[in-house]
Design a protein around this nucleic acid. Structure first.
Lengths: 211, 211
DNA sequence: CCAGAACCAATACCAAAGTATCGTCGATAC
DNA sequence: GTATCGACGATACTTTGGTATTGGTTCTGG
């Protein structure tokens, strides 16, 4: 499947860096988008296909590490590669702990940067795939009624319909009805499937509820 | 549960560093074990309770990063904290990518190091717990016969006994027998349980086999 | 050669799961 | 008011799952 050409964002206050990276990125067949400051970058809307961010640590206003903190939580689909002229160990540690793909000190070869970008885009693709899958599952789960969620929790814990009924104070036949609905709404084609969905969703189980 | 006092390994070629760390570690109630070189350290047998390694990057012979490479693969229960007098960015990046907990440049306060050690020991505990659990599961899985593993794979994929029989060219009743054996040997008390075990083990499923 | 294990299968039986149809009740939406 | 939906339950029936027992084959290690 021919995918959209990935975007490589660049945030650096040095115009010559921006220009050289822009042409380098374009040569590789990616779409460069350059910004001179964190604020400028943050105005750009989120994209829904593979992307990454090449980020200078030292920026006017909000610096690179601060920007990373903002981005890290929500956009796991946008991995970050740091570049800097004056990097020290503590900031490197912070950046890497927060999940940066690379931390490069200028000057670096084009090849090293490109390799890092490819790795970052791979991560991005993986994250996007995972998010898409999770979104589908969450939507289905949210379409369940409360009762159906309770039944699902007990069923994926391995309880028999009879036991589920006991726990919830309802009859076995009603449990079967709810269970059937759950299978339909979750589009699970077997119990095994439902169990796997529940664990990906970290949906509550009997153990969770009990604790 | 009163656990064994954790071990904190220290590898540093400077005797005064070793001595000061030793007393600091002892004060916190942990067992210090100090070494002057990587070779010396590698002679120490692996331990089965929480531990971590405080490691100087620059060492005579095998250096700290090389030692990390050796240790990283097998001993995930021994997280590493680097300390160094002359750290640069590339070595920091390498160390953090390879999973180091911290990378500290001398001089650092006792408090910072202790915090890092506590974090490392937490990781160690988690890794040990995970390994123990996996070992149990793997042992059980290895006790299965080939046929039993095939049946398990198809059952946790959500196939009915009848379908499993079809796939394997055996009768449904025989599948039931194997399936019962699997449940026993794996000590699974429900199908849901077995499915979860299989995914922790990354045991083959029908999809895996087909691919 | 024999014991044991893995593998296969059949009969018999019971428990559990799944489905369909029917009906009640209460809340909410139009 | 009527329609819809979630929750509950019942009857009736079929399929599937699980277990026990018995008995057969093949292969391997002592």
């Amino acid at each position: 499947m021919p995918e959209v050409s990935p975007i490589v964002f660049v945030v650096d206050d040095d115009v010559s860096v921006r220009e050289s990276l822009e042409s380098l990125i374009r040569c590789e067949g990616w779409q460069p988008k350059t910004f001179a400051s964190a604020q400028e970058f943050l105005d750009h809307p989120r994209v829904a296909f593979p992307n990454c961010l090449v980020l200078d640590v030292s920026l006017p206003g909000l610096n690179g590490l601060d920007l990373q903190t903002l981005v890290a939580g929500e956009r796991r689909d946008m991995p970050i590669i740091f570049i800097t002229g004056y990097g020290d160990v503590p900031m490197t540690v912070q950046a890497m702990k927060a999940g940066a793909v690379e931390f490069l000190t200028k000057p670096f070869s084009d090849d090293v940067l490109l390799r890092a970008i490819r790795a970052a885009l791979d991560r991005s693709r993986a994250a996007l795939g995972h998010e898409a899958e999770m979104r589908v599952l969450r939507d289905r789960y949210e379409s369940l009624s409360q009762r159906e969620r309770q039944v699902m929790a007990l069923v994926v814990s391995g309880l028999l319909n009879k036991q589920v009924g006991g726990e919830l104070g309802i009859s076995e036949i009603t449990v079967k009805a709810h269970r059937g609905k759950v299978m339909q709404k979750m589009k699970a084609d077997s119990l095994a499937d439902l169990v796997r969905m529940a664990s990906r969703l970290r949906a509550p189980t009997a153990a969770t509820t009990a604790a």
